[in-house]
Every structure is written in structure tokens, then in C-alpha cells.
Design a binder for these strands. Structure first.
Lengths: 221, 221
DNA sequence: AGTCATGAGTGACTTAGTCACGGCCGTATT
DNA sequence: AATACGGCCGTGACTAAGTCACTCATGACT
């Protein structure tokens, strides 16, 4: 999740919302910009606004006592953040932190408007609850993976998912990969080296080239 | 989570709901009973009803490829199940499985009524979203614990949370404890033995007596 | 008293997280 | 150009914890 997502050319409000609501969304939105690395949500902080990501990506994560991090999920263009939504709906403070992974442009609305739209528009609910259910489902899967899957398989799956086709290059450090997976940098380095020795990836400083994604998926170590 | 929760004497609909809604809840509910061990939700299954737990407890969990399990959260009297709610709101299939941990009595409503009440009643939304936010927050914390905390500390915290005061006895097997924590039975057995050697717990077949909860919390191994 | 199933103990081995380094590379500094 | 520095990576030694293949213990039921 350290690579840039291409920004959406023009934000389309693509969620099948009724025209009346779309015009309200256009009218009342305030544009906010975050630079890569900026904090978006602090753990335990109150949440007062609803944000729709227009371009870039947010990363929602937890930090352990040791300072190690694990990514819970990402928020891309056209999406909203589950934590954001849940805090607005429940009035509770944020249970996790979030930062901008890349430069981010978002449209921001006050809580009261968000709640009104959620109460009034079936399509708004369908859009928001769809994202909510997807992300919560993803987190349940994450729990299972962290608890039961071996690190080599998690890393391989991560590389394939992020990297895509053979020959593509991920611009990220072992450190950021470790923070996404919730493990230690040394573990990532060691596993990557064994992948390289088998010709599955090739490595350079700050760069991972995916050589053989199909073999990566089934690597048994 | 393998011990019985005391059943609520009479279900009070305790959520600050308006009288009009409470009378509807009383009128349209169908009572359903599950015996301990019965399946409540299957992973990937469609969800068509809304259930409010009246007595007993549900256990929502994920299963790994190896067959090992991890508990995501529990649902007690007066609560509803987050997965249940999210599936109804989003129309998606269940991302996890759930069983009755004890005998359970629940009140069941059709999806259409649940959606109508959610759309019409602010108090209903506050109740449901409050539970939703709590459980999702709990799951985020669980991810952090599984990823970063050592097993001895997780086990100790689990025993204290479940057992409560000094002298109390948990009626459960090492196996069920392992399934709650998402680890292997052998690991639980070994850790419990070291706790026993230090006088923190005492063990018998199917039984764990909490001897010194304060020391358990800070045990460093 | 013997059978049987469930629950628990054990040792050997593997995987992965921790700690403490040391080296390498690219950029900035003088 | 030489130096200094900081971000990134490699490595070895150690510990924690999951896996496997067992055996043993307990108690309920014939």
C-alpha cells in the first residue's frame, strides 16, 4: 500500500446517487488536501467530518506498544473511510489512526449533513454500508491471516496483489512492507531474499520487481 | 468465552427506544432458540433476519485452513450481532461463522422490518451503530493484539477478563481457550503450566482456577 | 473391572520476532 | 574531492510460539 494510486481525473460521485443528492454533495463539499505522510485520523480522537476521497489513498492502521504497525485497510478514490463513518454514526472516538499514503484530495462535509443524508437517502445508505461491510469483512479475513497464515505466504500474496503483472516494480522499502503486514523489517528482508534466490522477485534499494507472480502465489518455502 | 452468561430474567428492550417502536418490537418478534453448539451463521451464507439476543451468548469466529479457530467477538444478552447487522444493511453474505456458545434465546425479525426501523428511528440507529462501532473497534484491537502481543500476555489477560476475582473457576478446556485466542492447544497447555508453577492459577481437567489475578496481569514470563 | 473418549503433557523440530550489530549507498557539506 | 550522514539493507544469535507425533490421565459407561 505504499505505491501511488492514480488520481481520478474528475470526481464522478459514481455511486448511483439520485441527482438531488448529487447536487447537494457538489454544493456543500469543502475540498481538503493532505500531503503524503500527513496524519488524517488520530487514535482516540473525536471525528466531526465526513470525507470522501477524490484522489490518492489513505492508510488506516494500528500501532503496537513496540512501535510496530499493521495496516487495517486502505481507502482509495471514490471511497470513504470505515472508521470515519462508524465514528460519525456512533459518536465514538476513533479506534485507529490513519495517514495519507500519497497526496490526497478529499471532499469534506459536516457531520450533521452526513447524518441527514444517511437518514433520508436509501442510495446513500447502500453506498456507505456497502463499503462498510466490505472493509469489515476484509478485517475479519485479516485477523484470520495474521493468526493462521505463515509469513511467506502473506508476503507473497501481498506482492502479487500490489504488484500485479510480471515485470512490474514496487517502489517501497522493506520497512513499509513490514508495516503493512504487521511484521518486522528483518523478517521481510529474509523472506524477500529467499524469493530472490528462487527467481521469484529481483531486489534493489527501495525497489521490488515481480518476476514470476504465478510461482509466488504457490511458493511453499 | 466458553462459560455460560447468566440469562437476563426478562428481556427489557433496554436501549432507550421510543415506546411506539418497543411495542412494534414486541408485536413482530418471533422467538428462536438455539442449543449450545448450534450453528447460527455460516460463512458465505445469505442473511435474511435480524436477531436480538435475549439470553445466552453467541460466538463469532473465523476458521483457518488448518481448522484452527479464532473468536472475533461475542454477542451477549441485549445485543445484536455485528455481522448480522452488516449483512442486512449491505446485502452481502456473511464474512464469518457464528455458533451458540450456550443455550440461546433470541427474538427474530424479517429483514424488511429491520431496515424500516433503521430508516425511521434515530434511537434504533443509535443503538445498532453503537454496538457496531464497539465491535469493530474491538476487532481492530484484536488485530493489533494478534499481530504484536505475546501469547503469555494475551492468555493472562483473557483469564483475568473471563475469570474475574481471585478464586473463581473457569469451566473450559485448553482446547476452547486456544480456539478463542487463535492459537494451538499445546501452547495454551504449556503457558498454563508455567502460570501454575508460579502460583497464578491452579489446574484440573476441564477447569482453571484463577488464584492471583493481579499478578497474572503483570506476569512477564 | 475393563473400555473408551476426551483432555492434557511432552520432546523434537520449524517458523518468526528480537536484538545488536555492521555495511552500503546516495545526497549533502565543506 | 573527501567527508559526513542518514536511510536502507544483511546477518548471526537468541527466544517465542506453532507443528507433529506421540503417550499418559481421567472419568464416564458398560
Amino acid at each position: 500500500m505504499c505505491a501511488a494510486l492514480k488520481p481520478a481525473a474528475e470526481f464522478p460521485f459514481p455511486m448511483g446517487l439520485p441527482p438531488a443528492l448529487v447536487s447537494q454533495l457538489r454544493e456543500h463539499g469543502r475540498t481538503a488536501r493532505l500531503a503524503a505522510g500527513d496524519m488524517y485520523l488520530r487514535e482516540h480522537a473525536a471525528v466531526e467530518t465526513f470525507a470522501l476521497v477524490r484522489s490518492g489513498a489513505l492508510r488506516v492502521f494500528k500501532t503496537g506498544e513496540s512501535g510496530r504497525e499493521i495496516t487495517l485497510y486502505g481507502v482509495g478514490p471514490g471511497e470513504c473511510c470505515t472508521v470515519n463513518v462508524l465514528c460519525l454514526l456512533s459518536g465514538r472516538p476513533s479506534p485507529a489512526a490513519a495517514t495519507a499514503e500519497t497526496d490526497v484530495e478529499a471532499i469534506v462535509y459536516p457531520r450533521s449533513l452526513f447524518l441527514r443524508w444517511m437518514a433520508d437517502h436509501e442510495a446513500m445508505r447502500a453506498f456507505v454500508f456497502g463499503i462498510l461491510a466490505d472493509k469489515v469483512g476484509d478485517m475479519m479475513t485479516l485477523i484470520e491471516e495474521v493468526a493462521f497464515q505463515r509469513m511467506d505466504r502473506r508476503l507473497a500474496a501481498y506482492l502479487v496483489e500490489r504488484g500485479g503483472a510480471a515485470g512490474s516494480v514496487l517502489e517501497c522499502t522493506h520497512e513499509t512492507v513490514a508495516a503493512d503486514l504487521g511484521t518486522a523489517r528483518e523478517v521481510v528482508s529474509r523472506l524477500l531474499k529467499t524469493f530472490e534466490q528462487r527467481g521469484l522477485v529481483s531486489l534493489a534499494r527501495g525497489r521490488i520487481r515481480i518476476v514470476d507472480p504465478a510461482a509466488l502465489q504457490h511458493a511453499t518455502l
